[in-house]
Design a binder for these strands. Structure first.
Ligand code: FES
Ligand code: FES
Lengths: 135, 135
DNA sequence: GACAAATGATACTAATATGGTATCATTATA
DNA sequence: TATAATGATACCATATTAGTATCATTTGTC
């Protein structure tokens, strides 16, 4: 079972790389040179991040991407939300069918608790913190 | 993102249904009558549980399945292990490639912590506890 | 002993999610 | 105006999940 997919992971690492004091434009060419990700896949990922306002972009020659906000304010949980959908560990697989009572269901309550903890932990991980502790 | 798949969920509910004081044989016919799961799918699931020693079975006419141990000793985390493989939220997606140093990686440490918490919570959920709090 | 009702074993199929490519349009700069 | 970049979008490949189908084996009942 995976908590983060490859897409999320690529996104995260690209963002860590881009989290420079200067916050200048970084092109896909530069990123893949450094990170060795498949180019078109990374392109798609960055375009998604742009659409979701995590990155800004500049088109045309000498264009590229840059962070839309400080790396301390970009959290892993945001990236998971973008690439894997919202975390809903407690979602009931039975919905309308045989589900006894969603509000009373013990299993659901337990899973909700787990989810809350996971999200809290994930919120403590920012691109900034990951960059700072890179070795 | 799902913590438990449908297979795990079906297994869990079937086990809760079977967790009766008497622990007598229950046939697939009875289970699907009560739980409305797809018959061949449930059959496969129960056979897996048998193989993994969560259930015992009795073949032939009037046969069926019964719990191999008390419901208080069957945990959700066991079922996840059987149907979804071991929980490895912290698995590195880069392995040999660009992975800097598995032992130092901050992300990995954080994910390990999350995983430990999730597993601990999951261990507190047994078939017995789920049955007792059913409404 | 024959039949029926159950599980055992196993192979196959369908649907969905994930990982990744390919192509062409648009824009900015030199 | 050529070039180097992103924008948009459609497509393809692989893995996982969900489910079916079939036949063999066992066992209780008449
Ligand atoms: S069965 Fe639906 S919330 Fe528990
Ligand atoms: S990159 Fe491999 S453990 Fe962090």
């Amino acid at each position: 079972m995976k908590l983060i997919t490859r897409e999320t992971d690529y996104a995260m690492r690209a963002l860590v790389y881009m989290a420079r004091p200067k916050n200048s434009l970084v092109s896909v060419a530069e990123l893949i040179k450094e990170l060795k990700f498949p180019r078109p896949f990374l392109r798609k990922i960055l375009q998604t991040l742009k659409r979701r306002r995590v990155l800004k972009s500049h088109k045309g020659k000498r264009g590229g991407f840059l962070l839309a906000r400080p790396p301390e304010k970009i959290f892993l949980v945001d990236l998971i939300g973008i690439f894997q959908g919202p975390i809903e560990l407690d979602e009931c697989l039975f919905k309308k069918k045989l589900c006894p009572d969603v509000n009373v269901c013990l299993l659901r309550k337990k899973l909700q608790k787990i989810e809350a903890e996971v999200v809290a932990q994930l919120r403590s991980i920012s691109i900034g913190s990951l960059r700072d502790e890179r070795n």
